[in-house]
Design a protein around this nucleic acid. Structure first.
Lengths: 106, 106
DNA sequence: CTCCTAGGTTCAAAAGTTGAACTTACTCCC
DNA sequence: GGGAGTAAGTTCAACTTTTGAACCTAGGAG
């Protein structure tokens, strides 16, 4: 119906945008992304495969033996970074105070 | 860790942003939002309740008997509209062609 | 009366997500 | 050369979430 729905089909899940954010920071390795986002391995694996399949990231083998990979943003993936910037600004203004408050009473 | 994660805690799910988009278009009634997004009733109900709880939307009773409600964006919710605009632009450029292509071979 | 509508709720089933344990193909250190 | 360590996974059962279908309510229209 509109571009937003299509966009969400590619990146509208719990870990995709956090992973892309890390790639934007220059954090390119699986285990680093995993540590910094807190995503479970299995979820992160499928998410990175999906993003690769959608052409938002590329997987690069940077060593053959043993096989080691890193992930980099494609042009399409880079195009999301400014949006993530705006989302962070919005989040800091409206979401962070709320989330902190709600974590207090748990 | 950063505002993006907090933002996603509020709106990072399958239906929240689509519902907010509709409110941005001036579509304020439950059944209209449901029809235009395709969200199942039960999911939409919990999503709208969550968004109300987070202060991104308000519920207004516009008739008492029988009770009828409509939803409107708060200031925090309005703040997301420009981001949705950018996301739509991005989606039309990168996501829509892909999603259309992948629907062909199903 | 009887059917229709808006805005839900309930419930079981299907789908998706998770953590723990295991794997592979090496390197490093003693 | 034997054992521990490591990056990037995979597998699988348990858990959680999402879904669709059916039902509900308090009127209103014919």
């Amino acid at each position: 119906m509109c571009g937003i729905a299509d966009a969400l089909e590619l990146v509208g899940d719990r870990w995709a945008l956090l992973a892309l954010r890390e790639l934007g920071f220059g954090v390119n390795r699986f285990s680093e992304i995993q540590a910094r986002t807190g995503a479970p391995k299995a979820s992160l694996t499928t998410r990175l495969r999906d993003l690769e399949g959608s052409g938002l990231i590329e997987r690069r083998r940077y060593r053959e033996h043993p096989p080691r990979d890193e992930y980099v943003l494609t042009e399409a993936g880079e195009g999301l970074l400014p949006i993530l910037g705006h989302l962070r600004t919005w989040g800091e203004k409206y979401a962070t105070p709320l989330v902190r408050a709600s974590r207090m009473d748990n």
